[in-house]
Design a protein around this nucleic acid. Structure first.
Length: 428
RNA sequence: GUGGGUGUAGCUCAGGGGUAGAGCACCGGAUUGUGGCUCCGGGGGUCGUGGGUUCAAAGCCCACCACUCACCCCA
């Protein structure tokens, strides 16, 4: 029996793999314009870190982590998100002592043991960014502008940004209680899931998908009306800055996030073409987290893009075979080696060209017909044919595919550098 | 964790008790060293796995597994 990949873990092949790196590159380009610098983080951390950062009672910590004991018994976890690690590194390296503001980005695999479905995998990739040291609304607006710029750069103009304010330590607990009281009052009318939520996570009562609960939740108290004055003012300023920038967003008073550390501004981005897992990015402010993880009292805000979902969205947005084909690796020259006596020269020429930066596909050991067919299928514009005749005069025949024309003795085997490039018709 | 759908060639899928198929892809030939179009030929399958029913199972029955979509949750 052949061994297959673990459930929820996938291989990225061909154009899919290229799409990923293309998206990652564009996103990083935007992030660096905003002053974020890369941090390379471990994907394994002490379980304790996530339990403390994300919250003991969240779904992620309760049942979605890949946790196992190390040889000495300490519990380790494959990271189920990136912010906790970034904050841990920030604290561990005393980055607040270096500069009053720190901006970091990272990318890489994230692990959650969930049931896989479209756009949801057990290993997926995130590109995340964290901004430490600024608590002003300007920082929130700048971060959201950055998110918008990444989306636009990727051609996801139809992606929607949803924002909300979750309040802070001074107003959210009170609101939670109000919501819980409301839930108790309507316990009989709520779906079984929501009944559990009353105790566990009352904020989730707001975004149940059940028709009955949705109707009912319209009568629930809204956090918006319970925000303390500083939170309300902060949110209003963020919004007016976004308005001034022309960054389009929607306020979703029901937006609730699954990680406990968020407060004040939080947001989510949804895109089309993803099935029911429509969120391609999420983030928010987490002013209390650095201190909770043993660091100084420092405000912070961050977000993460789901690379896998971005790829689905980008694919849906461009969706034509042509654009997909544009991602294929097309060789500039295909070298066809006929017969054993031509191998060494073929390999030498291929290597010279490759060292000059030319994408070369080399093949041999079978009929010219099949080599030509393959060159054609790969889309190579020129084929350098090396057979007995060519080796005898040490000059290769150059086949121009689109013109259906052969150019005999076009490429001298001993050419180097620009002369060689010119001979095979490759512009530098 | 719960539910639905699907498992037959590398890919997309047809076949519903009686000799395993098509299209595409791949390889070869027509054209001794020249691609796309056409024609001809070829290789490739424990029909997801295990058990059962039957003279006979890819097909019917049971169990399991995998994939997938959805719930949940999230990126």
């Amino acid at each position: 029996m052949a061994i297959s990949a673990v459930k929820g873990f996938r291989d990225g092949l061909g154009s899919a793999a290229r799409l990923y790196s293309e998206i990652e590159t564009s996103a990083i380009r935007v992030l660096e314009r905003y002053g974020f610098s890369q941090i390379r983080l471990p994907i394994l951390e002490r379980t304790e870190l996530f339990a403390r950062a994300i919250g003991e009672t969240t779904d992620i910590v309760e049942k979605e982590m890949y946790t196992f004991p190390d040889r000495d018994g300490t519990l380790l976890t494959l990271r189920p998100e990136g912010t906790a690690s970034a904050v841990r590194a920030f604290v561990e390296h005393h980055l607040d002592q270096t500069d009053s503001v720190t901006k970091l980005y990272y990318s890489g695999p994230i692990f959650r043991h969930e049931r896989p479905q479209k756009g949801r995998y057990r290993q997926f990739e995130q590109i995340g960014a964290e901004l430490f040291g600024r608590d002003d609304p300007l920082a929130d607006a700048e971060v959201l502008t950055c998110v918008r710029d990444v989306l636009d750069e990727l051609g996801l103009a139809t992606a929607r940004i949803m924002i909300n304010s979750l309040g802070d330590a001074s107003c959210r607990p009170k609101y939670r209680e109000r919501l819980r009281a409301w839930g108790e009052e309507h316990r009989a009318e709520l779906c079984p899931n929501c009944v559990r939520r009353i105790e566990k996570n009352p904020l989730r009562l707001l975004d149940c998908k059940e028709e009955g609960c949705r109707k009912l939740s319209e009568t629930a108290p809204l956090l918006r009306d319970s925000l303390c004055e500083p939170c309300a003012s902060h949110f209003a300023q963020v919004r007016s800055l976004l308005d001034a920038m022309g960054v389009v967003y929607e306020v979703d008073p029901r937006l609730v996030r699954g990680l406990d550390y968020y407060e004040r501004t939080s947001f989510e981005v949804t895109a089309e073409g993803l099935g029911s897992q429509a969120a391609v990015a999420g983030g928010g402010r987490y002013d209390g987290l650095v201190a909770r993880l043993g660091g100084p009292k420092i405000a912070a805000i961050g977000f993460a893009f789901g690379l896998d979902r971005l790829a689905l969205a980008v694919q849906a947005a461009r969706a034509t075979a042509e654009q997909d084909a544009a991602l294929a690796l097309v060789p500039a020259v295909f070298i066809a080696s006929l017969g054993a006596d031509t191998r060494a020269d073929a390999l030498a020429l291929a290597r010279k060209l490759r060292r000059l930066g030319v994408r070369v596909e080399l093949d041999g050991g079978r009929s010219l017909k099949s080599l030509m067919r393959r060159a054609d299928r790969l889309g190579a514009p020129r084929v350098l044919i090396l057979g007995e005749d060519e080796v005898a005069v040490r000059r290769g025949t150059l086949r121009h595919m689109t013109e259906q024309r052969d150019e005999k003795q076009a490429v001298d085997f001993d050419l180097e550098g620009p002369a060689l490039l010119e001979a095979v018709g490759v512009a530098r």
